[in-house]
Write a protein that binds this DNA or RNA. Structure first.
Lengths: 220, 220
DNA sequence: AAAAATTTTTAGATTTACCTAAAAATAAAA
DNA sequence: TTTTATTTTTAGGTAAATCTAAAAATTTTT
């Protein structure tokens, strides 16, 4: 059984490992909002417990045991987010902090019943996949909106940025999960993208386009 | 803002203060499952924060601020218990430990939305009243079953013991909240009570009768 | 390949909540 | 009202998670 803090480290390492094979001390420190020295201490502890593989100065990676524990936390986080949005009418930009607390509640029974109560959802309010109770989940095939070409179209099925500011911005533009979009132009000057959605022309910055995930349905 | 641990102390002091005016160090230690010396330390801290009144060797009592914080935790605990039973189909003897964790989730918004989602319940699965968001709740008028006389009748509206063993026992006897009962006999020998409920004669020990709360509807 | 910059680790402290053992205060019994 | 028992507090220490400052290793630049 891991402490609240250990769980947070495992979760952060898990997410960082999605980008780089081995995870750097500084990267963890930034995510946890702590100092690199503290991270080194905790990494040693996690290594002793067999949750991470660690070679001094070479970064860490999760062991199978560590990954499994991390996925369990991710599962809880995402299920609670669904609960907050579907049942308590939170908006998708309001759920992160509360789910961050709820994910640490320790009761296998609670999570299985919650899963059932929510109808065994496959993805959370941001389109992220929810692992099943065995830790398995479909690696969904997302394409970043920024990588589409003029004429391409698809459906918004996720975001890769969960900040409230970003999500509120999308909300205001009407770019929510499930929306159909088509690329109509890409501006040479600033790389901003012109898209057609709900019969309206919308211009989004490169930065925004990077964090919208599309399940492509090819060219129209 | 209180820590997890401080919240537990406040809650325990609140409950103990329902029985005795000022609360003893040893009584707190027993509830928190810690040593009296640790309790003294924490009490000093709570006193410094203005949450309890404390005179050395004389026990503690909650200040208005402390009581308000305690009631807030009790409110959360009881609302989560309703959620677990009403929505996730937990039994009334299974909810305590999980609610003990959930009660520490810090989000005013969450609790108000949960309250609404549950339909603003007035009492929890054990019949205990749920404070409203201002900390107000009706002091319900309960009578202990043990204090009823032969011929008296009433409705089971609460229990004063939340252990799983006790609740499972009641469940097996069919003595759940809302059940009508009538006292048919009191045994001289061991003080056990003979009651009529759902057209069945049931014998319950004195110890059990002490912890069943009745809202009396007089003699029939 | 040496110098500079960055990253990471060590060493030594701090804070929170807890502990044991012994001393002090209070309450109960003789 | 002493003596005894109980309760509570103090004193000094521990473990978890953090910190700062300085040292060590690695990476990047020149």
């Amino acid at each position: 059984m891991q402490s609240f803090t250990e769980e947070n480290y495992l979760k952060v390492i898990y997410h960082l490992a999605e980008k780089t094979e081995t995870v750097q001390t500084n990267a963890i420190a930034e995510q946890i909002q702590t100092k690199p020295a503290s991270v080194t201490d905790m990494i040693k502890k996690l290594a002793d417990k067999g949750l991470v593989d660690y070679i001094k100065y070479q970064g860490v990676s999760l062991t199978d045991k560590g990954r499994s524990a991390a996925i369990d936390i991710v599962r809880k986080h995402r299920l609670w987010e669904v609960f907050l949005v579907d049942k308590l009418n939170f908006k998708w930009d309001e759920v992160h902090d509360v789910a961050e607390e709820l994910e640490h509640i320790k009761s296998v029974d609670l999570i299985e019943r919650l899963d059932e109560f929510l109808g065994f959802p496959k993805s959370d309010p941001h389109g992220d996949p929810i692992p099943d109770k065995h830790g398995r989940f479909a690696k969904t095939q997302f394409i970043k909106l920024i990588d589409l070409k003029v004429g391409d179209s698809g459906t918004i099925t996720g975001v890769s940025q969960h900040s409230s500011a970003f999500l509120k911005h999308l909300e205001k533009l009407g770019l929510t999960l499930g929306k159909q979009i088509q690329i109509t132009d890409v501006t040479d000057f600033d790389g901003s993208v012109e898209i057609l959605s709900s019969e309206k022309q919308i211009n989004i910055s490169r930065e925004v386009a990077k964090h919208i995930l599309i399940s492509s349905n090819g060219k129209i």
